[in-house]
Lab assay of single mutants.
Amino acid sequence: MEVRTIKVFTTVDNINLHTQVVDMSMTYGQQFGPTYLDGADVTKIKPHNSHEGKTFYVLPNDDTLRVEAFEYYHTTDPSFLGRYMSALNHTKKWKYPQVNGLTSIKWADNNCYLATALLTLQQIELKFNPPALQDAYYRARAGEAANFCALILAYCNKTVGELGDVRETMSYLFQHANLDSCKRVLNVVCKTCGQQQTTLKGVEAVMYMGTLSYEQFKKGVQIPCTCGKQATKYLVQQESPFVMMSAPPAQYELKHGTFTCASEYTGNYQCGHYKHITSKETLYCIDGALLTKSSEYKGPITDVFYKENSYTTTIK
């Protein structure tokens, strides 16, 4: 009895394709271990004539594949690729409408935090270190965002349907971005203890939790000093293409032309909904596939993004 075979390709990165001759009487799992086709788990399936010449994702289970996976995804987590594939199996079914010149995501599976993050990423200057993220990001900007969303979920250790947080998501993504040249110098002034300067680099240099107003941050924000008295913390120097200011959701007025974009969060910790506000020729609110415009805006804002380049204080 002759062994019926077909020729397929296996890959971990969709760049390096490895030619395989597979036995049609055995499952993919018996031949390769966990195997995925377009995100779908085909591990328990036997090869079919229609699979001839198709590319299958496999887990990096030998040295060659491990090197290829690390170079593309910059992670050695053995569960990463499987999590990416199972997320992709959902995100490829989502709709990605162009809204006001940006790629958004039609609401499904509690994905409003991903839509808000995706919209924000198209408006701030950011370059990702893992080629996987950078490639998928370019495709997302062009309207094909399924891979990018699935990668975000995998890097953030999230599953489809789980509630997510924009600030946490951005923080994970910033860790995989090139923020080497970003720098922030802060000064804390206390009447009792004097003053202390701190220099922050990388992710810490672009994120701040405690106030939404970048102007206020430049002037000074009140913080408790270690001595128990009130101290003032203010920005001395900022070198970065953008800054992200966050605070627990509270009524906040966004003035046209003073910011790049913002995240609105309605609801409580267990259950809520994100919308995205962007400042173009007027203010726009993007909620999944829905767009509304207004000249002014007041609502429960939790993150505001500002364009920056270089700032030095005039406070002496």
Rank of each mutant, 00 (worst) to 15 (best):
E2T: 10
V3D: 14
V3S: 12
K7L: 11
V8G: 05
F9E: 07
T10I: 12
T11C: 03
V12D: 06
D13V: 01
N14Y: 04
N14I: 12
I15F: 15
I15E: 11
N16D: 15
L17Y: 12
L17F: 05
H18M: 11
H18A: 08
H18Q: 09
T19H: 12
V21N: 13
D23F: 08
M24R: 13
S25F: 08
M26T: 15
M26W: 08
Y28W: 08
Y28E: 08
G29C: 03
F32H: 15
F32W: 15
G33D: 01
P34G: 07
P34E: 14
P34K: 11
Y36L: 05
Y36N: 02
L37A: 12
G39K: 03
G39Q: 09
A40H: 12
A40F: 11
A40I: 12
D41C: 12
D41H: 07
T43S: 12
T43G: 10
I45Q: 14
I45M: 12
K46N: 13
P47A: 12
P47I: 06
H48T: 15
N49L: 14
H51C: 03
H51D: 14
G53S: 11
G53R: 10
K54A: 14
K54R: 12
K54M: 11
K54D: 13
K54N: 15
T55L: 05
T55N: 13
F56V: 09
Y57I: 11
Y57V: 12
V58N: 07
L59V: 10
P60H: 07
N61I: 12
N61K: 12
N61E: 06
N61L: 14
N61V: 11
D62T: 11
D62Q: 07
D63M: 06
D63W: 07
D63V: 07
L65G: 13
V67T: 13
E68A: 08
A69K: 06
Y72H: 12
Y72F: 10
H74P: 01
T75F: 08
D77R: 07
S79P: 15
S79A: 10
S79R: 13
F80H: 07
G82E: 15
G82S: 14
R83T: 02
Y84C: 07
Y84F: 14
Y84L: 10
M85A: 04
S86D: 13
L88R: 07
N89T: 09
H90P: 03
H90D: 09
K92N: 10
K93M: 10
K93D: 12
K95E: 15
Y96K: 06
Y96Q: 00
Q98F: 15
V99F: 14
V99G: 12
N100S: 13
G101F: 00
G101T: 01
L102S: 09
T103S: 06
I105P: 00
I105K: 07
K106A: 15
K106Q: 14
W107A: 03
A108Y: 05
N111F: 05
Y113K: 04
Y113C: 09
A115D: 01
A117I: 12
L119Q: 02
L119G: 01
T120Y: 08
L121D: 02
Q122W: 05
Q122M: 03
Q123G: 01
I124K: 04
L126R: 03
K127P: 09
F128M: 07
F128K: 02
P130C: 06
P130D: 02
P130N: 01
P131A: 04
P131C: 03
A132F: 02
L133E: 01
L133F: 00
Q134A: 09
Y137R: 04
Y137V: 04
Y137I: 08
R139Y: 10
A140N: 04
A140W: 10
R141D: 02
G143C: 05
G143S: 05
A145K: 03
A145G: 10
A146F: 04
A146G: 07
A146W: 09
N147I: 08
C149G: 06
A150H: 04
I152S: 02
I152M: 12
L153N: 00
Y155L: 05
Y155E: 02
Y155D: 08
N157Q: 05
N157C: 15
K158A: 09
K158N: 05
T159P: 09
V160Q: 07
E162V: 03
L163W: 08
G164W: 03
G164Y: 03
V166C: 10
R167L: 00
R167H: 14
E168M: 14
T169P: 02
M170F: 07
S171D: 10
F174V: 03
F174D: 01
Q175N: 08
H176P: 01
H176N: 08
H176V: 05
D180A: 08
D180T: 10
S181T: 13
S181V: 04
S181M: 10
C182T: 03
C182Q: 00
R184S: 12
V185C: 04
L186Y: 13
L186C: 10
V188K: 07
V189Y: 07
V189P: 08
V189E: 04
K191F: 09
T192W: 06
T192Y: 10
C193Q: 00
G194Y: 04
G194A: 05
G194I: 08
G194S: 05
Q195E: 13
Q197Y: 05
T198Q: 14
T198I: 15
T199S: 08
L200K: 07
L200G: 05
K201E: 07
K201M: 10
K201H: 15
G202S: 03
G202Q: 03
G202L: 03
V203T: 08
V203N: 04
E204C: 02
A205M: 00
M207L: 05
M207F: 02
Y208W: 11
Y208Q: 00
Y208C: 06
L212E: 02
L212Q: 01
L212G: 05
S213P: 08
Y214Q: 07
Y214C: 01
E215G: 09
E215P: 00
K218L: 02
V221M: 08
I223G: 12
I223S: 11
P224Q: 13
P224S: 12
P224M: 14
C225D: 05
C225Q: 02
C225V: 03
T226I: 13
G228L: 03
G228I: 02
K229S: 14
Q230A: 12
Q230Y: 12
Q230V: 12
A231P: 04
A231R: 02
A231C: 07
T232L: 12
T232N: 03
K233V: 13
L235M: 03
L235A: 01
L235Q: 00
V236T: 03
V236P: 01
Q238N: 01
Q238V: 01
S240I: 02
F242K: 01
Q251C: 12
E253L: 08
E253R: 08
L254E: 05
L254H: 03
K255F: 07
H256M: 13
H256S: 09
F259K: 02
T260V: 15
C261A: 07
S263V: 15
E264P: 00
N268E: 15
Y269Q: 15
C271M: 15
G272K: 00
G272A: 00
K275R: 15
K275E: 01
H276W: 06
H276G: 01
I277F: 07
I277Q: 10
K280E: 07
E281T: 09
E281N: 09
T282P: 03
L283R: 01
L283N: 09
L283A: 03
Y284E: 14
I286S: 00
I286K: 03
G288K: 08
A289T: 07
L290C: 12
T292I: 06
T292F: 10
T292Q: 14
T292D: 10
S294R: 14
S295W: 10
E296C: 11
G299E: 12
P300R: 10
P300Y: 14
I301A: 00
T302E: 01
Y306D: 05
Y306P: 02
Y306K: 13
K307P: 13
K307N: 07
E308M: 05
N309H: 00
N309G: 12
S310L: 14
S310C: 06
S310H: 13
T313Q: 15
T313L: 14
T313M: 15
I315R: 15
I315H: 15
